[in-house]
Amino acid sequence: MRQNFVRVLGGVAMAALLVGGATACKQDEGSGTGSGSQACDLKIGFFGALSGADAGLVTPMKQGVDLAVEQYNKANADCQVTVAPFDSQGKADLAGGLATSAAADTKIVGMVGPAFSGESEVALPIFEQATLPSITPSATRPSLSTKGWKVFHRGVGNDFSQGPAIANYIKSVIKAEKVFVIDDQSAYGAGLADEAKKVLGPLVVKTDKVVDNAQEFGAQISSVKTSGATVLFYAGYTEEAAPFLKQLRANGWTGTFIGGDGINDANMLSVTGQKDVEGTISTCPCGPATAAKGTFVTDFKAKFNGVDPGVYADVSYDLANIYLEAIKAGKTTRADIQAFLGTYNKAGAASGVTYKWEANGELDPAQVKVWAFKATNGAWAPDLEIPKG
């Protein structure tokens, strides 16, 4: 996910001391089991839009990480871990400086994120040079796994799974005959639209684009209305999708609006307004966080004032716990944790997904699933798991 394509300016010269990561203090576990020692005073980073128009999607991910670390620290009072947040505001042009700061903090031995695809394209080369392991809970652009970045891992499926699933939903569930496809020209949106169009084929009667930060969509709305499309697939983010949908409804378009995980947040519901957003479909290459396994939902709601976990909160919780498992096992360097991820093969306590990565950092395809959610009475309600193929 997000944002616009930007060029990584120059070669960021990382100091040689970064290579291999941090070596932290060690402290005996005192369990009498002879299990060795564990690393102390280390940090797990979180990278994503914690403010701005897209924070509604990303904040639950950070909350999942916070919950995991809080639980770990309660069980390991003498050997604490902290979360280091990096607020990208969903903007790729901020990602380089933030990634450099994260790489320079040698206490950070693992990163959850970046959350969006555009910022990942900027940050990952810097993390690669600093050997800082990264697991994104939500960046879905397929090309992220083709760059040769050894530190890159993806905790969900990519748009090669989500794009066709959206198309299958449009064809098989909505049974649309005319589809309009629009994207926001971001690394995420453009790729998702391309994958969906391959499957939709002749059902696509017209395509268009919007620009980042746009708030007026008169030309696009006119094009949608004259196309005769009864379904609009919007590949992009809430920041533009919410006012676009609101203006579509104000101009009399009554068709079905469907988007990817980039609109699956509370802001899409509140900014658009319940009347206009009702019946909107969003997808996610993840299951409903509100149906997570174990005590995750109960624990999340207890910590965050009764609020249900948003999409990717359970995934982020699981990813943070993988890093914490490594730390508990005494992994004190970035290289140690990178090696730990390379052989990891366990189910997450919340999502139930078995986290096992291929050599390019992609999640084992057998673990990938895509769900559709429907805006119902002011909330995203699980609709169905979209069949593969």
Rank of each mutant, 00 (worst) to 15 (best):
M1V: 09
V6L: 11
V8F: 09
G11H: 11
V12R: 05
L18K: 06
V19T: 11
T23G: 09
C25I: 04
Q27H: 10
D28R: 11
G32M: 08
T33P: 00
C40Y: 10
C40W: 03
K43H: 10
F47Q: 14
L50R: 06
G52V: 04
A55Q: 14
V58C: 14
K62W: 07
D66M: 08
N73K: 05
A75V: 04
C79F: 06
C79Y: 09
A84E: 14
A84V: 08
Q89P: 02
Q89E: 15
A92T: 12
D93S: 11
L94F: 12
G96T: 11
G97L: 03
S101C: 00
G113S: 10
F116P: 10
S120G: 06
E121F: 15
V122T: 15
A123Y: 11
L124A: 03
T131R: 12
T131F: 08
T136V: 07
L144M: 09
S145D: 08
K147A: 12
W149T: 00
V151L: 03
V151F: 02
F152D: 07
V156C: 07
D159V: 02
Q162N: 00
Q162M: 12
P164E: 01
V181F: 12
D183I: 06
D184I: 04
A187P: 03
A187D: 15
A196P: 08
V199A: 05
G201M: 00
G201T: 03
P202E: 13
V210A: 05
F217Y: 14
I221H: 09
T226A: 11
G228F: 08
V231W: 06
Y234E: 10
Y234L: 08
T238L: 12
E240Q: 15
N251V: 00
T254H: 08
D261A: 10
D265E: 09
N267G: 08
T280Q: 10
I281Q: 05
G287E: 07
F296N: 07
T298A: 15
K301Y: 06
G310I: 01
D314S: 15
S316Y: 09
A320L: 05
N321Y: 02
L324M: 09
I327S: 01
I327A: 12
I327R: 01
K328V: 01
R334Y: 04
R334V: 02
A335K: 14
A347H: 10
A350F: 06
S351T: 15
S351Y: 04
G352V: 03
G352E: 10
E362I: 04
L363I: 13
L363G: 12
Q367F: 13
K374D: 01
P382F: 04
P382C: 04
L384P: 01
P387M: 08
